[in-house]
Design a protein around this nucleic acid. Sequence first.
DNA 1: CCCTGATTCGC
DNA 2: GCGAATCAGG
Length: 173
Amino acid sequence: MSWTEERVEVLKKLWAEGHSASQIAKQLGGVTRNAVIGKVHRLGLSGRATPSRPVKRPPRLARPKPRLSPDGSVPAPIKSPEETRIRRSEQHAIASALQPAPVADGEAATILTLRDSMCKWPIGDPADPKFAFCGRKSDCGPYCAEHAKVAFQPQRKRDRKNASDSEPRRIAG
DNA sequence: CCCTGATTCGC
DNA sequence: GCGAATCAGG
């Protein structure tokens, strides 16, 4: 699809109405939100009502795009400073690898040290400053293996009152 | 993870 | 001029 006058009109209209680029793209059809954004910029109507845009990022340098060379061969494996730079997602991965668990097994994690893949079983009173989480490794769920058992335990007969205190409670202490 | 707009640059 | 890739942020 191309940017016919009609389509540009629709674009302008929807953009002015506050629709997002992806919504506009979906309505127009045949274009991606990137195409819409690109067109919006080219039309010079980029910043509509954008009060919350004190987001001035430092100028982004040339795109370190690892694309194919014009001749189709693989570009020289030279690493530009940009490529050497650690990407955000990689930082996340590295951080995870570096500190699989900031706390030893069995130790509690605070809200600050609680990471993904850590048991989020609450320990203590949430209102208590010492409130913490289990923090052990949680493989495929929010809890470690042990807590997962009790967390996802099918609802059993509720003994009236405090018949069984041996059963773990969500909120201890 | 989902999403948003912004920017760059090969085409 | 176009828009994918990428970015920065919510």
